[in-house]
Amino acid sequence: MLKFKFLLWMFTQLLQRQIKTNPDCARYVAGKDLVFQIRTEAGVGRTFFLRDGAIRSVAGLVDRPQFTFSFKDANQGFAILSAKDSQAAFLRALGRQDLIIHGDFLAVMWFQGLTAFLQPPKKTAPYDRTAF
């Protein structure tokens, strides 16, 4: 449970850093007003507020978020959110119903674009002069 809570708190810190240091990320969130939460079925979770080009979060849940990611339990949530193949892990979790998404589908799609800013840059293969 503590790992899950820490991961959610750290998620806010990483996004704050990206917004401050990455102009593309700052443009992506500019003017966005969004409230969402990531939680377990048992009600453990965190609420995230994106407003005025900044993100903040608080422990606990609100009544009317625009969308919610609800994991079966904290262990599943941690495993899925910290998976190296995060997109595939999300899809598998949805199929197994270890993750249920409620709310505004367009906001969820926008959020997926935001999380792309947290991915490490892709390495490009070195130029192979012998190929020609």
Score class of each variant (00 low, 15 high):
Q13M: 12
Q13G: 11
L14G: 04
L14V: 11
L14W: 10
L15S: 04
Q16G: 06
Q16N: 14
R17H: 12
Q18D: 10
Q18C: 10
Q18R: 14
Q18A: 15
Q18E: 14
K20L: 14
K20E: 15
N22Y: 01
P23L: 10
P23F: 01
P23N: 02
D24E: 13
C25M: 13
C25V: 13
A26I: 09
A26L: 08
V29C: 02
V29I: 13
A30E: 12
K32F: 00
V35M: 10
V35C: 08
F36Q: 00
F36K: 06
Q37P: 07
Q37R: 04
Q37A: 02
I38E: 05
I38G: 04
I38Y: 05
I38N: 04
R39A: 13
R39W: 00
R39G: 04
R39H: 02
R39P: 04
T40I: 04
A42H: 08
A42N: 12
A42R: 07
V44H: 07
V44L: 10
R46L: 05
T47P: 02
T47A: 01
F48Q: 02
F48D: 00
F48T: 05
F49D: 08
L50W: 00
R51L: 10
R51Q: 13
D52W: 00
D52I: 02
G53C: 01
G53W: 02
G53F: 01
A54K: 07
R56C: 09
R56Y: 07
V58A: 07
V58T: 01
G60E: 04
G60L: 09
L61V: 06
L61I: 03
V62Y: 08
V62D: 03
V62G: 06
V62W: 06
V62L: 09
R64V: 10
P65N: 04
P65V: 08
Q66I: 07
F67I: 03
F67W: 01
F69Y: 09
S70G: 00
F71K: 02
F71V: 01
K72T: 12
K72Q: 13
K72L: 14
K72V: 10
D73S: 01
D73E: 10
A74E: 12
N75V: 10
Q76N: 09
Q76T: 14
G77R: 02
G77W: 11
G77V: 11
F78V: 06
A79I: 04
S82R: 13
S82P: 02
S82T: 14
A83T: 14
A83P: 12
D85Q: 07
D85L: 08
S86T: 14
S86M: 13
Q87K: 14
Q87D: 15
A88Q: 15
A89K: 11
A89Y: 09
F90P: 01
F90K: 15
F90R: 05
A93F: 06
L94D: 07
L94Q: 05
G95T: 13
R96V: 01
R96Q: 09
Q97Y: 05
D98N: 13
D98Q: 11
D98A: 11
L99K: 10
L99S: 08
I100W: 04
H102M: 11
H102Q: 12
H102R: 15
H102L: 12
F105I: 15
F105A: 14
L106Y: 11
L106E: 15
